[in-house]
Structure formats: structure tokens, C-alpha cells
């Protein structure tokens, strides 16, 4: 795993292009295994995690080169273990949520240093298993977390061994644990390298859609011209950018298998990957995966 930079690309970048900025180097305190990054447009900052150093770091929006983080949450009181997935920002209540595999830590958004979390959602009732993507909705007072048990919906202020108020899971929703698409993927999953949870990276569109990627995404051999071992798609489904209505999710209590409002697929049935970002200005969805990115127009969800 080569170069753990945070690179910035122009929105209209296309083809083989170099980044316009690269935040990299010892001073940045960045490490590899960073699987969530949140840009805060209200404060012009971005937040990411260094799972190896058990740190949550905030950078100025215009950071470049060997920029240092302006705030770091790190230390024995933080309870941070390996936060390589899921960061949530709540500017209304000024809180920062951190997913840490099987629990969630909530800090003051501007916390610095060795601070104890305000709340910890942890315990067997939470159903937090391999928790990954997260989003906070301060309007509906919801906290959504993608896990191996499905998309879990908590009250925003949940604390302790709190059970989710709703669990979205099932074939209608498309939120099901992925079946490995190849021997390589299966073996990788068995070893914990690239296993697929029920739902990973999630984002909230301004129009109130919860957006994620379901189904099989492209593997390196797809680009190398070699077919995947079985040449099939996951669960018979093509990869798709999937959008569920958050208003509909909010109506569910208990288990639900909610149909998505939209599924956008590519003609090839494959997409770049499961990492996702939304550009509300031009109504675009960015996807990232192994060594590539794609941009889709998706005005229906904005």
C-alpha cells in the first residue's frame, strides 16, 4: 500500500490526471487505512481519522503539502481503538461522531487532545458489528450506521447499550451481505482484507436521500482485461448507486426491508467502487475504488 496522501482533484478532472493538491508527509500525521473523510462546508474544514495512531484529525479546507492538523483528538480518555470507518458531523449540535468497529464515540465537534467522549453507544443491544459508513441527521434527529447487520437507525442522542430503533435489511432494500464475486474476493474476505459488509459508505443528499453503492464493484482484473473468476455480479445484481428516502426510513420502527427510491447503474453493470461523495452544486455523485474514480450525473436525488 503505497502513498497515503489526501489528494485533491478538480471537479472536472477526467482521464489520467494529476491532483491539484496533495496533503502528504510526516507533518500531516496521516496514515493509511483512512476510510472516511468529511468536508465541513460550514467551517471550511475536513476531518479524517488516523486509525493506527487512534486519532481524529481536523485540517483547514485549503490544506496542502505538509499541512499540520489544526485539531487532534487522541489519548487514553478518548477510548478510540481503530476508527478507520465512519465520521459524522453535526453542525447544529456541534458534535463529532466516530465509528469504531463495534461502538460509536461522540465528541464535541471542536474537541482537542485527550478528551472523554460525551456519549458512547456500545453493547450487545446496539447490533453494531463491523460498523462502517455513518451519517447524522440533526433535522430528523437520526443517526444511521452501516453494519454487517444492515443499516441501523438510532436516535441521534442514543447513548450506552441502546438498541437501534430500526434496522433496514433485506433483498428489497438491496442491503444484504455481499457474496464474494471471485475466489480472490472470497479469500480476501475470509482474511478480513476486503470483505463486504451489508452496507458501507453512505451519504445524505440535500433532498433527503440516503445514498450508497450496492452490488459488485470493479476489481483490478476488470481493468487489466482479465475476467473475474466467475464473471458474474454479486447476488445477480449489477452495481448501483442506491438512494433510499430518509423520510421513509424515519417511519420504520423495528425491522424493515425498504425499497430504494432510485437505483442508478452503469451499462456495464460495474462501478468504480463503494466510496461515495456528493456534489450538490452540479448534482453529481463521485465513486471511488481500487485505483479509479467515476462521476455520475444523478439529478433525481438532489
Amino acid at each position: 500500500m503505497a502513498y497515503p496522501q489526501i489528494a485533491a482533484f478538480a471537479r472536472l478532472a477526467n482521464g489520467d490526471v494529476a491532483p491539484v493538491r496533495s496533503i502528504a508527509g510526516q507533518s500531516t500525521m496521516i496514515s493509511r487505512a483512512d476510510h472516511d473523510l468529511q468536508y465541513n462546508s460550514a467551517t471550511d474544514e475536513f476531518v479524517n481519522a488516523n486509525p493506527e495512531a487512534q486519532a481524529i484529525m481536523t485540517f483547514r479546507g485549503d490544506s496542502d503539502g505538509e499541512a499540520k492538523p489544526i485539531r487532534i483528538i487522541q489519548g487514553p480518555h478518548t477510548q478510540i481503538s481503530f476508527p478507520n470507518h465512519g465520521i459524522g458531523l453535526d453542525n447544529v449540535h456541534n458534535e463529532l461522531f466516530v465509528v469504531d468497529k463495534e461502538f460509536i464515540l461522540v465528541f464535541p465537534r471542536t474537541a482537542v487532545g485527550d478528551v472523554a467522549p460525551l456519549r458512547v453507544i456500545r453493547g450487545s443491544d446496539t447490533m453494531l458489528a463491523n460498523a462502517r459508513g455513518m451519517l447524522v441527521d440533526p433535522v430528523r434527529n437520526l443517526l444511521l450506521v452501516g453494519t454487517n447487520n444492515g443499516l441501523l437507525v438510532f436516535d441521534r442522542t442514543a447513548n450506552g447499550n441502546a438498541a437501534p430503533r430500526a434496522i433496514i435489511y433485506g433483498p428489497v432494500s438491496g442491503i444484504v451481505k455481499r457474496k464474494p464475486a471471485s475466489q480472490t474476493e472470497a479469500l480476501s474476505e475470509a482474511r478480513g482484507g476486503g470483505g463486504g459488509p451489508a452496507i458501507g459508505s453512505i451519504r445524505l443528499s440535500p433532498k433527503g436521500y440516503v445514498v450508497s453503492v450496492r452490488g459488485r464493484v470493479a476489481e483490478p482484473q476488470d481493468r487489466a482485461g482479465a475476467p473475474a473468476a466467475d464473471g458474474k455480479t454479486t447476488n445477480g445484481l449489477p452495481a448501483g448507486i442506491t438512494a433510499w428516502s430518509l423520510d421513509d426510513i424515519a417511519k420504520i420502527h423495528g425491522r424493515g426491508d425498504l425499497a430504494p427510491a432510485f437505483v442508478l447503474s452503469s451499462p456495464t453493470g460495474k462501478m468504480a467502487g463503494g466510496s461515495i461523495a456528493l456534489n450538490p452544486n452540479e448534482k453529481e455523485v463521485f465513486l471511488g475504488g481500487l485505483h479509479s474514480m467515476e462521476v455520475y450525473s444523478f439529478p433525481e436525488i438532489f
Partner: peptide, 10 residues
């Protein structure tokens, strides 16, 4: 571009 495994985007 020096992409690795792109684990997230913003």
C-alpha cells in the same frame, strides 16, 4: 494520480 485503494471520498 497515485491512487491506491480509495477508501473514501469527500
Amino acid at each position: 494520480p497515485m491512487f491506491g485503494n480509495i477508501g473514501t471520498l469527500a
